[in-house]
Design a protein around this nucleic acid. Structure first.
Lengths: 384, 384
DNA sequence: CTGAAAGCGCTTACAG
DNA sequence: CTGAAAGCGCTTACAG
């Protein structure tokens, strides 16, 4: 009765936790196919109907049934009709797993992300699933919760299901060497959103982080801001570095200096972002920034809270921009100026890319998707 | 090159759209296992390592390797160690699909919902996946987009992957008879969130809709409101009926009449909810309501927008409550009083329930999860 | 404690 | 156009 422990892949493969759960169809043992010839098997709820049943019922070979199933033109129209009628009558359900085993194919793709509760990834996942479904593939879901250890475990488990590809948004702190242990040379991998050094053999789909941050910074400059901070994110993540580079470039292009104290790190969650607000105003020797380009929307939301707590009105006394355009961004007070990445469309694109990589010829490639600036009130501050 | 059409299950089973994509491992044909005995197969990236390879390499039978893999105590410690070393050396990956075929088991559960972009379902899905992963199962994802037709297609496709169970949040307008066509007597089904007549053979997990709406209504009554509308949802959905019943019961308990014009239908999206705001105030013969219990948070958000458009301050001039407690609810202006259902916990619960149903003895059961009132400013209206 | 053999449900050459 | 046979990678009685 006590639940099995989760698969602890100590050896990274011993499937000691194979779920020992029979499919309901077969929960009753001894269904040795006693074959009461002519009996209506469509009525027996315990038996699982196979191509053999169909073949026997109408006196053709299993090969013929298989050809009908696969839509082969080789079989006579009459025979085909008889087979199809019998398939329907017995409510045959194709066993794609068995077919995949025999054909050495796969009809699934693994999708591994940090957390579905992040609306950006939820949209992304929805897009992946949509596009995959359209191509006849099913999505195998996995989440890492930003833990590289859990990521290893999840990927190991998913690989045992022989996915045709893996779409992976790596957990923060992922190590390419570790990943190669579970995603070996055979695996068809597409990395999303976070670049990884030492993973050049895999495809990559990312956002145009640099250009996005540049757009946001230029927008603030055009509103008259001259002291603009870059707020939040961890400088060791590639997306943060790229966004910082965009900020730096825009500042440089406008001939504006960047004080090092305007580069503030924070975990990308609301709480820490709010807590670090003071760091923007900590140094009395310098004039403080009047605006901040935030690492992402969540950070921006936190910063706006932190500003309010100090009696500063975001969008009035201080301008804020985000990144991602999560649904909340449109309904906060004030609504958030941010960069829209169209995560659902990215999901579709990721699915296409990973399937394209299956083609022998296609070598993994690096794809950068554009982002667009969505202007709302949080950046509306005019300098007094 | 042109992409295959999606699986159109005209006969509801002919797998004409079998993805003809070889696993990358086998993209090169003629890998007929020429067995260069002693060659280090760990180095050949094209070959997929099987139990046979392991067995041959160290001179034991495949059965022994299989026993080691499954953690059987029958095999000698020395042999086990040798097998495990060789598994590691050749980077063996367990083929769970093959094992499932032979053992007639399954290690997946299908999760079918309307849309992951709905934060309530995203949280729910995250919870399902978490709990399933802990038990060694993998989640097969499917989404219906509220279309019963698409739902049939998605379920048909997922059933071909022989899931051990199906967690289904039925699309609006689902028909139990149709569902039984693809989810036959063998299928282990748990319905979530939406009740379906004629589906008593399946498990059900729902929220305490009636009690939740009653709590919200009582809360408004306690604030002095006497004319309280029920706003949004479609009266033909079970959850809407139950929430309306909770509203009616609270009103009755307080001796308050309910004017039929206070029961207003609307699709559960922001746009339509906003557009129908006028219906609350349309009738000049009666005093209009001073508060509304909304079908869900999305409707409440739309209504608040509609109120603002008429110059009415939600939470000041008119009280509003929602249902679900989506993340946005805490950050809107004003923050929304609503009923929290802890969707992630519901997801975990759904996973547990569907796995429990696998046990022969356990018959499907009806489970109602409690909801709790989360009071914020949108209901703060005191009557003048 | 280990091995030989059969079989899960399907597909694929190969004959006819 | 159809059938007999082999095999995908695994597991499970059954002998020894």
């Amino acid at each position: 009765m006590s639940p099995k422990r989760p698969p602890r892949p100590e050896t990274a493969r011993a499937p000691k936790a194979t779920p020992k759960v029979a499919r309901k169809a077969n929960a009753v043992p001894g269904s040795k196919a006693g074959k009461p010839a002519g009996a209506d098997r469509g009525r027996d709820p315990q038996r699982v109907v196979t191509v053999t049943d169909i073949a026997n019922a109408i006196g053709v070979s299993r090969a013929t049934v298989s050809l009908v199933l696969r839509g082969s033109p080789l079989v006579h129209a009459d025979t085909r009709a008889r087979v199809e009628a019998e398939l329907k009558r017995q409510r045959y359900v194709y066993n794609r797993g068995a077919a995949n085993l025999r054909r050495r194919t796969s009809s699934s793709v693994a999708l591994v992300i940090n957390d579905l509760a992040n609306p950006f990834f939820a949209e992304f996942a929805a897009g992946v699933d949509e596009a995959l479904g359209d191509r006849g593939f099913v999505t195998l879901l996995g989440s890492t919760g930003e833990s590289p250890e859990r990521q290893q475990a999840v990927l190991t488990s998913l690989m045992e299901h022989t996915p045709a590809g893996v779409i992976l948004s790596p957990a923060e702190g992922s190590d390419a060497a570790q990943l190669h242990k579970v995603l070996d040379a055979r695996a068809n991998v597409l990395l999303f959103n976070r670049e990884l050094t030492g993973a050049d053999d895999w495809g990559f789909l990312g956002l145009d982080n640099q250009h996005g941050a540049q757009l946001a910074t230029e927008h603030l400059i055009s509103l008259g801001h001259r002291r603009i901070a870059f707020y939040g994110g961890h400088a060791d993540s590639s997306s943060c570095r790229q966004r910082r580079a965009g900020h730096a470039q825009a500042m440089k292009k406008a001939g504006l200096p960047v004080d090092p104290t305007w580069l503030i790190e924070s975990a990308p969650n609301r709480l820490e972002a709010a807590a670090r607000t003071g760091e923007l105003f900590g140094d009395n020797d310098h004039a403080p920034p009047t605006a901040a380009v935030c690492y992402n929307d969540t950070v921006a939301l936190g910063l706006m809270l932190g500003l309010l707590a100090r009696g500063i009105q975001p969008g009035k006394g201080f301008a804020v921009t985000g990144f991602d355009d999560i649904p909340e961004a449109a309904v906060t007070t004030p609504p958030l100026t941010t960069l829209a990445a169209e995560p659902r469309e990215r999901g579709r694109q990721a699915a296409q890319l990973v399937l394209k990589q299956l083609d022998a010829g296609a070598s993994p490639q690096r794809t950068i998707a554009p982002v667009t600036l969505s202007i709302r009130e949080s950046s509306g501050a005019r300098l007094k």
